[in-house]
Design a protein around this nucleic acid. Structure first.
Length: 679
DNA sequence: CAGTGAGCGAGCTTCCGCTTGACTT
């Protein structure tokens, strides 16, 4: 009997069916050994070591202590028994950095030594598997070293910086390479919203009475452009150097009566072709984004539903960063498109998509229907599972369909001294949009009639509308997963977990499906930014990836790299960090956020109160601040939250005593903390 | 005299990434 070990049980079943008799295919369920997370799992000889809690002997070339993971005890026992009676053991963990490490840890636990046979393959077909097991290689120790470097760095950074927060903020706080960089991105967005000053301006629209009629907007008067939202800076002023006119209500009203007496002459007609390519097949982040936008599902819910579909054999593996489709998948997708829309809906050749993500490891295919591409209605699925499967099915098919082709028409008209513009798009070939439309339905696109330069039309129904410049939008969970991927922060298997951690720590909260940074989150972010800017820098992970690649190729030593990050950078910053608690002066308000015992509070002219749990920075106005200070504040009852919001916020419920304890912050206590801390 | 509460000190918290069930509530 030969033993083949993969990571996932679903994959094991599939491969078992290919290899058949003479093979045992088993799953190890991911990592089997790790750094210790508590003292009781430590081997006896390390119990008294100074680095016991850290699990890394920094002074001895950053040697890690590895212990078998408790949650894998049974799995390891079973694998050991099988390995003993097997004539050969093949280690077939995923073909990436983490997979190579898993293979090595298995080889140690199973006592395989140099005989360990490492096999990898890019797709799960009988041919690919048989070819892989016929050509085993040895374990790539450079790649294993790169993974170990990543693991050690994360432990040193996380366990090094988190205690700073216990001192400065109080309570069970945490910091890390991924979660703190993510918090910083969210916090920067929240801060630019808090300091943003909105400006009001007026826009005037009119109906051009052609056959059929269409709508046009006033864009300029006597050659001077009217202000749009883009004309204003974040502080509410018109951007300098712009020659624009800001309409107020009075001028807008005058403009309306002027327009109603005018005729418009067509001054220019511009036609330009429009080609829209289909969106690529789904990756983990793409699935989160699409399911959030189209199905209004939260991150945790999408993960649960997708995992279930994967286990039922409906879709391929759900944690992937590659939009790649196998030849077989492209063939099946094209067949399904031809059945539904006819062969004319297909381009000559199948379409392959390249990843846009620099850090992609591409160990898996895109997320697509597994097996025979069952039509959604014939799967027997229902509810959210059906909806999510349909999304995967349609995105996969759409990726193989023709481009949508059309024409954009832009018309300029002159009505006396007033310049008007109208535009519209008409699709002449629907292409993939016949199946899957990825455009926001809100940006309406009118079909313009054919008009000629010099034609005259009367105007009617002129209307003025007040608009406001708006701050950068908050992120939904789905959108933010894409932001993390683009910044190279985290991995497909951790995007959801990172969002959960940030919510569990009460740094981030969901409201109306949008991610908000809490007062505590703002304080933690501003503290980390001041004391350990290296850790929260969004570039940090991207640079790390480059260095890990050099370690994997053998051109950079693991110890030299860790020295440059730990001994030369992070460790000195941690030693020099101030321990006093952070303050955050709120823009536009005479109030400062402070924190005591892990609870954020508000301080106004020396007097402090703790903030109730569900108060977010956007709730703080002169009125609510006054009410909070004199104790008359009533939390506005949030509107009934939808299911996806509940699903995520439930596990985030805080059970820790320190965090839920409420103590008023007084001027004397905050002052004392600061004076002791700065010594 | 009994009950209350301020104040003190000891001990605790934490990372990222790879995988699923087996546990309660």
């Amino acid at each position: 009997m030969k033993l083949l070990i993969v990571e996932s049980p679903a994959k094991a079943r599939k491969i078992q069916s290919y290899l058949g008799q003479g093979w045992q295919v088993r799953a190890c369920l991911g990592h089997v050994r790790d750094l210790p997370n508590s003292k009781d799992v430590l081997p006896e000889r390390y119990k008294d070591a100074t680095f016991a809690k850290l699990g890394v002997d920094v002074e001895n070339n950053y040697a890690p202590i590895y212990v078998a993971r408790k949650d894998k005890a049974q799995t390891i026992k079973d694998l050991k028994a099988l390995a003993k009676s097997a004539e050969a053991v093949y280690l077939a963990a995923d073909p990436d950095r983490e997979g190579e490490s898993i293979a090595w840890h298995l080889s140690v636990l199973l006592g395989l030594g140099k005989d360990a046979k490492r096999v990898t393959y890019q797709e799960i077909t009988e041919r690919a598997i048989r070819q892989a097991v016929a050509n085993p290689r040895t374990i790539d120790f450079h790649l294993v070293a790169a993974q170990e470097t990543r693991r050690v760095l994360d432990r040193l950074a996380g366990y090094g910086v988190s205690p700073l927060l216990w001192n400065a903020v109080g309570g069970p706080q945490s910091a890390g390479r991924v979660q703190s960089a993510a918090l910083m991105l969210l916090s920067q967005r929240e801060q630019s919203r808090l300091s943003f000053v909105a400006s009001a301006f007026w826009r005037v629209g009119v109906v051009v009475a052609s056959q059929p009629a269409f709508k046009a907007q006033v864009t300029a008067i006597r050659g001077t452009a009217l202000a749009t939202a883009a004309s204003f800076g974040a502080s509410g002023q018109l951007k300098s150097g712009l020659d624009v006119m800001q309409l107020d209500q009075e001028k807008a009203t005058q403009l309306i009566s002027y327009l109603n007496r005018q005729q418009a002459v067509v001054g220019a007609v511009t036609l330009s072709p429009v080609v829209r390519r289909p969106p690529p097949p789904l990756t983990t982040s793409g699935l989160q984004q699409a399911a959030n936008a189209k199905l209004k599902l939260g991150a945790a819910q999408v993960t649960r539903l997708a995992q279930s579909l994967y286990e039922q054999g409906r879709i391929t593996y759900i944690r992937t960063d590659s939009p790649h489709l196998s030849d077989e998948a492209i063939h099946l997708a094209r067949e399904a498109v031809a059945t539904r829309f006819g062969p004319s809906a297909l381009p000559q050749e199948g379409r392959q998509y390249a990843t846009r993500n620099q850090n992609a490891q591409e160990a898996h295919e895109a997320i697509r229907p597994a097996g025979t591409f069952a039509v959604p209605e014939q799967t027997g699925l229902s509810g959210d599972e059906l909806a999510l499967y349909r999304l995967v099915y349609e995105r996969t098919l759409a990726s193989q369909m023709r481009d949508a082709v059309g024409e954009k028409t832009a018309v300029m008209l002159q009505a006396g001294v007033v310049t008007l513009h109208a535009s519209g798009v008409v699709l002449t070939e629907k292409g993939f949009t016949a199946l899957y439309d990825d455009q926001d339905s809100s940006d309406e696109e009118q079909a313009l009639p054919k008009v000629l330069v010099g034609e005259r039309f009367s105007l009617k129904d002129a209307k003025a509308e007040e608009k406001k410049s708006s701050p950068p939008a908050r992120f939904t969970e789905g959108k933010f997963v894409q932001v993390m991927e683009k910044a190279g922060i985290g991995r497909p298997s951790t995007y959801g977990a990172t969002l959960e951690t940030l919510q569990k720590r009460n740094y981030v909260a969901l409201r109306n499906r949008q991610l908000h940074v809490t007062p505590l989150g703002l304080l933690v972010a501003s503290y980390l930014m001041k004391q350990v800017p290296q850790l929260v820098n969004a570039e940090f992970t991207a640079q790390m990836e480059g260095d890990l690649d050099r370690i994997a190729s053998g051109t950079l030593s693991r110890v030299a790299y860790l020295d440059s990050i730990w001994k030369a950078t992070l460790s000195p910053a941690i030693r020099a960090a101030q321990l006093f608690s952070p303050r955050y002066p709120l823009p536009h308000l005479e109030a400062v956020l402070e924190v005591r015992g892990g609870v954020a509070g508000l301080v106004v002219s020396g007097k402090g109160v703790a903030l109730p749990d569900n108060v977010l920075p956007e709730d703080l106005t002169p009125q609510t601040v006054a009410a909070l200070m004199d104790g008359t504040f009533k939390a506005s009852k949030p509107k009934t939250s939808d299911a996806s919001e509940r699903a995520v916020s439930q596990p985030a419920k805080r059970t820790n005593g320190a965090a839920s304890r409420k103590k008023p912050i007084t001027a004397s206590t905050t002052k004392r903390r600061r004076s002791t801390g700065t010594k």
